[in-house]
Amino acid sequence: MNDEQLKTCRELAKKVRIHCLKMVHKGKSGHIGSMLSMADILPVLYTQILNTAPASPKKPDRDRFILSKGHGGAALLATLAELGFFPLSWLDEYYCDNGKLSGHISHHIPGVEFSTGSLGHGLPVACGMAMAAKQAGKKHRIFCLVSDGDLDEGSSWEAVMLAAQHHWDNLVMLVDYNRLQALGKSRDIIDLESLKEKLEIFNWAVREADGHDQNAIFEVLRDLPLCNGKPSAVIFHTVKGKGVSFMENNYKWHYGGLTDELLAKAIKEVEAAK
């Protein structure tokens, strides 16, 4: 990315983080840690990688993006709103009575390809979309962003096996690998290590990158598929709660509890970041 593109991505990530903090605070909801974890990936994806158009979110040749970790959906909603898929004012109607935006993402919102919320659903659907695109000879790509918890689900691994079996190289799995899940460290619950080797043994082409270095995110995604004839997986090493010191690497922030005082402190930290 050139300096201007990088600046765009950084500013968007900052806005997304602040939107998420405010949305979660106002809605008295949770999952802020999961949102901040992917807040650097989504801006690069949406401004540099995906073929999408805010004015025509259903255009046939768009790249499909499925957020399988639907609980972090506010980060995607904030990204879409900032890019003009729907009015920014909708973000004020998150997680409230008669609100436009639910806690887990819904396809009723422009730009949201698929509704998720229960883990392990995104990748199988992405596989179906990949199969349909191949059958129809279409060139768009299907991206699916999954979490550590997503990869506990058996259905995700059913899809991992099927995608490799059928050489769906139009499918890209992005892993927001923050190594924390609802009740603690993934290492202590279901250790996914070594995830890279696991996926390679399952016949995927795999790369790793720092999920908070936007240049690195861009570099690893600029030339897909990673290998012709294989589905691609990019493992982004991330930090749950990234950007807010008291949230980072603390699974407590999978849940609620953002007071007025903590919100002010969090926003101050995000704004001060370079």
């Binding site: 990748l123 199988p124 659907v125 179906g128 979309m129 199969m131 259905s155 059913e158 099927l162 079996q165």
Partner: peptide, 18 residues
Amino acid sequence: CGVAEQNMTGVACGVAME
């Protein structure tokens, strides 16, 4: 899809969404 009904249904949905 192999003996994998959850994936079968997800794949079917993805195919239908297109």
